[in-house]
């Protein structure tokens, strides 16, 4: 009966994942490998960025720098992703019964880790798929942006390369992301114990699910858990890059939701 409860929890979490994340790993992989039929617009230099932006926005504002255009797109996509992660969190059994302050804390610290996990599914060694506007931005082009903009995405490619070797599918990722959100050691939690209990159930469900879904990889849970520490480091570094951009660029405006999240974060 215990295993049946865990399997039912896995199904609930997976269904919440499918209901809330518009671009799944399966869909992203189909597009990246050309199985989906329609190929994305490839953005590989300033000219292709300019063309793509005119295509999506109707006009290209030459007054605006490419770096700012790219970073604003990135911010826009981040806010959408944070909304998706929030809706997903609300569907995780037990999350809604937590104190509202703790729900805020879990999201403040968890949304970026969840987001960078999901973005790994949209990345290959050559670039990242931005399927909301059907484009693929190359890693080499992102590296050519001026500093500190060039440092925004590169560490995420490095993480994705390591994370993607685990070959988790969407049903695994659903539980992995739920475990990231329900983390009992975020700063300032009022009832860490209650959250640890919820995370414990998710981790047990994840363990059982991986055993059934990847019978040939007995150490997969341990490997996946190690990646959670890497994600925390990735987010800390990301917050530093955002501060560097803020300090270096007068024209830069951080979205109010991102401002809230980064303020007093680490």
């Amino acid at each position: 009966p215990h295993e049946a409860n865990l399997a039912s929890l896995s199904r609930l979490v997976y269904s919440a994942y499918l209901n809330n994340f518009t671009l799944t790993k399966e869909k992203a992989r189909a597009i990246l490998t050309g199985r989906a039929g329609q190929s994305p617009v490839v953005i590989h230099d300033m000219e292709s960025l300019k063309n793509a932006e005119s295509l999506f926005l109707g006009k290209w504002n030459i007054e605006r720098e490419a770096e700012l255009v790219m970073f604003n797109r990135y911010q826009h996509r981040s806010v959408e992703a944070i909304c998706e992660v929030t809706e997903f969190a609300k569907s995780i059994p037990g999350f809604g019964s937590l104190d509202l302050n703790d729900q805020v804390t879990l999201l403040k610290y968890g949304v970026h880790e969840a987001m960078f996990t999901l973005w790994s599914a949209y990345m290959n060694k050559d670039g990242i798929l931005v399927a909301t506007n059907n484009s693929f931005v190359t890693r080499e082009f992102l590296k050519t942006l001026r500093k500190p903009y060039s440092s925004v995405i590169e560490p995420k490619f490095e993480f994705a390369a390591r994370f993607n070797t685990l070959e988790l599918d969407d049903s695994d990722l659903a539980l992995f992301v739920a475990a990231i959100i329900l983390c009992g050691d975020r700063p300032g939690l009022l009832d860490a114990h209650q959250i640890e209990e919820l995370q414990d159930s998710i981790l047990q469900a994840f363990h059982l699910h991986l055993r059934n879904n990847h019978p040939d990889a007995p150490r997969l849970l341990a490997h996946a858990l190690q990646k959670m520490a890497d994600l925390r480091q990735l987010v800390t570094e990301h917050a530093d890059v955002v501060v560097a951009i803020k300090q270096s660029d007068a024209a830069f405006a951080l979205h109010p939701l991102l401002q809230e999240i980064y303020e007093d974060m680490y």
Partner: peptide
């Protein structure tokens, strides 16, 4: 905390239809 995270708070309560998004 909810005071300093008004948009996150709103997202939790009302979803992404909030005008702040």
């Amino acid at each position: 905390l909810t005071e300093r995270h008004k948009i996150l708070h709103k997202l939790l309560q009302d979803g992404s239809s909030s005008p702040d998004i």
